[in-house]
Design a protein around this nucleic acid. Structure first.
Lengths: 140, 140
DNA sequence: CTACATCCTCTAGTGGCTAGAGGTGCAAGA
DNA sequence: TCTTGCACCTCTAGCCACTAGAGGATGTAG
């Protein structure tokens, strides 16, 4: 068994060193064994787990959701309904976020196009922000 | 001059009461005059400013950007180049965010579609997260 | 005059890290 | 062997933009 230092674990998983320690602190990653000099010593299973976490975080899953996904991963006999539900919920969130960002983009484009690059009192950027009536948002 | 309480200012601007006080604390909104009983008393100008802030926050502008936008608004003779630059930067951010969320959505859809609703060891949700090679992300 | 909503200040907590202080361990070169 | 210098350790505090709650004062309707 080769010992993997936290630095190497970081390099190989793409998770920063303080973040690995943070994950240990919040119980997302089990505390590894220590070397004689009290330094953390990881194994390849830990690298897999870290990569899993990093990937899930990149997909925008919250730490609590990841906790659930990890516990599911540990028991392969279980039904994957929970994992499916979590992913679906995340998909709905992402779709909603894309919709609102797209509306936003249109509004920002109107602001930027309308700005005559002159003085502030003719600038649509300020105007659109200041005047509620200009706003395209449906929720107003 | 009718006095506007913080609660009414909140209702009319759409900014929550503690958030208004918070904005005062960080110097985004000037401290208003007070009633005899030490209660904040706003004027219509404050309502306009609060609405401006709320709208800018909804568009995802950071508090620091809003500070700049507000100072521009206060001096209408100035060039609007800064406001334009801020809005453009925000537009670029939003476009980037939409792109990455769209990639994400595709990945989530693949995960959810692939899940056979059986046991975890056949579930693509877990599999995709665990196995780096499955990942579509370009940055890997 | 009494309820009761609203207001006040203050502190602490949220999520998911990140930065820094102040110290120890370890491997390689002189 | 010594020393240089990086990587590691723990701990606390900070980030953003709020939000929650304690504990008390004020204002208003019936």
């Amino acid at each position: 068994m080769k010992k993997i230092t936290i630095g190497e674990a970081s390099r190989r998983s793409g998770v920063k060193v303080p973040t690995i320690r943070y994950y240990e602190g919040i119980g997302l990653l089990a505390a590894p064994s220590r070397s004689e000099g009290n330094q953390r010593s990881y194994e390849t299973a830990d690298l897999r787990r870290l990569t899993f976490i990093r990937h899930a975080r990149e997909l925008g899953f919250e730490v609590d959701a990841i906790r659930t996904l990890l516990s599911l991963q540990d028991e392969p006999n279980q039904s994957c309904a929970s994992a499916d539900a979590i992913a679906k919920a995340r998909l709905v969130e992402v779709e909603q976020r894309i919709r609102s960002l797209t509306a936003l983009k249109a509004e920002l484009e109107m602001m930027v196009e309308g700005c005559g690059h002159g003085r502030v009192d003719q600038c649509r950027v300020i105007e659109v922000l200041a005047d509620h009536g200009e706003c395209m948002h449906s929720h107003h």
